[in-house]
Amino acid sequence: MLYGSKRNVCSKCKAVNMFGETFKNVSIDFISSHPNCTFSSGDMISGEMKFELSKDVKIQHISMTLKGKAKISWTTRRGSGKSRHTRVHSAKLELFKLESIVVQGQNADEITLKTGIHVYPFRCQIPHGDFPSSFVGLHGRICYTVIFGIHRSWHRAKQFESEFKFVNHVDCNNPALLVPISAANSKTVCCLWCVSGPIMMDVRMERKGYVPGEIIQISAEFGNGSSRRVVPKALLVQKQAFYTAGKSTSKIVPRTLVCTMGQAVQPNHSDVYCELMLTIPEDAPTSIANCPILEVEYVVMVSLEISGASNLETLFPIVLGTIPLRQEECRPPPYSMVAKNIV
C-alpha cells in the first residue's frame, strides 16, 4: 500500500475478472486525515476510482460495495496410508456490507463510456459498531474492502477491489488497563528422597495496557533455596486463536515475539532483585477480543529455568491498544495473584 505524504492518500487495487485490455491503469485511492491512512468506526471514507479505457464500452451501471469480513481456515489430517483423510475447518463472518450506485443510465438504459480516462469520486460512511481491527494471521484474516463493479447487459460483472486498513481503537488509559499487577509462585524440587528448599518468585508489572513500541518493565524478586542454578527469563507471547462456528473446533497458535534473560540466581541465595525489559515490536498487531472466530491475545511469561527440573512460571495477560498512556493518569491500587505448586 502506498501512502501520500501531503494528502494522506493510499492506493491499492486488485482487478477481478478483467475483460481483456479494455480497462487499463485502474486505481482506487483513499483519502484519510490519519498519516497512516487508516479508518475507524463511523469515519467517512472517501477517494476516487480511476481507470483508462482503450475503446468505447456500453454499461448499465457502476456499483460500489463497502464490506468488512473475517474468515479462517485450517486443515487436520488423521490416519495413515489409504485410511488417511484430511478435514478442512473453516468459518466466515460478514461484519457489514453496504451497496450503492456510482453511475447509472436513465430509465435503465445503457450508457456509453468513451475511450480515455475516467475518474469517479466516492464518499460513504463506515457503519458505527464494535468491529475488529484489520489483521492477517496464520490461519485467517480480517479485512475491509471497497469493491467497484462494472455491470453490462448479458455479462458477468467485472470487479475492481481495494483493501483499506481499519483500526478499532483501544485506549490504554482505560482504568481497567492501568491496574498494576503482581503474581507470586514457588516450588520445591526433589532428588530421590531429598527435597530442596523452596524456589520462589514475586513478580510485578506497572500496568496491563500497552501500545506497540513501548517497553514493558518487569520487577521481580527471586529466592533460590535449592542447590541448583536458576536463570530468570521473560517472554512476550502472542496467541492467535481461530474458531469454527460455535467454537466447536479451535486452533491456537502461540508465537514468541520477544525474549530476554536475566542474571543467574546462584544456589542458596534469597532476596535477589531483578529488572527485566521487553520491547514490544512496532509492527505487533493490537489485541482482538471482539471477533467470534478470530482472537489475538498477548501474555507476558516470567519464568525461572531450573537445571534438571521444570520451569517455575508466572503469566500476565496484557492488552495491546492504540492510544498510549497519558502520564498524568491516576492509577488504582494494585492487586495480587498468588499461585503455588510442588514438583
Rank of each mutant, 00 (worst) to 15 (best):
residue 89 H to Q: 08
residue 164 F to C: 03
residue 66 L to S: 11
residue 72 I to D: 04
residue 71 K to I: 00
residue 14 K to D: 15
residue 28 I to A: 00
residue 281 P to S: 12
residue 154 W to L: 14
residue 17 N to S: 12
residue 126 I to L: 09
residue 143 C to A: 11
residue 269 H to D: 11
residue 18 M to R: 08
residue 123 R to V: 06
residue 8 N to P: 15
residue 77 R to M: 09
residue 307 S to W: 03
residue 75 T to R: 07
residue 24 K to C: 03
residue 152 R to Y: 05
residue 226 S to D: 14
residue 143 C to Y: 11
residue 45 I to Q: 01
residue 79 G to R: 09
residue 148 F to N: 10
residue 251 K to C: 13
residue 281 P to V: 01
residue 3 Y to R: 13
residue 157 A to T: 13
residue 252 I to E: 11
residue 161 E to D: 05
residue 277 M to S: 06
residue 159 Q to F: 02
residue 15 A to H: 04
residue 137 G to M: 08
residue 295 E to H: 12
residue 136 V to D: 07
residue 161 E to N: 02
residue 320 L to S: 10
residue 98 L to M: 10
residue 54 S to P: 00
residue 203 V to K: 08
residue 171 D to A: 13
residue 21 E to D: 14
residue 276 L to E: 14
residue 248 S to K: 08
residue 249 T to H: 09
residue 201 M to C: 07
residue 194 C to K: 13
residue 72 I to E: 13
residue 318 I to E: 15
residue 135 F to L: 10
residue 78 R to N: 08
residue 118 H to Q: 03
residue 229 R to P: 01
residue 308 G to R: 14
residue 58 K to Y: 07
residue 256 T to I: 01
residue 200 M to V: 00
residue 289 A to R: 05
residue 31 I to A: 11
residue 5 S to F: 07
residue 189 V to I: 11
residue 165 K to A: 11
residue 33 S to G: 07
residue 164 F to G: 02
residue 177 L to H: 08
residue 266 Q to P: 00
residue 85 H to Y: 15
residue 239 K to V: 03
residue 23 F to K: 01
residue 65 T to F: 06
residue 326 R to D: 13
residue 112 T to W: 12
residue 87 R to F: 08
residue 337 M to T: 13
residue 258 V to S: 04
residue 342 I to Q: 15
residue 15 A to N: 08
residue 96 F to A: 11
residue 13 C to I: 11
residue 250 S to N: 09
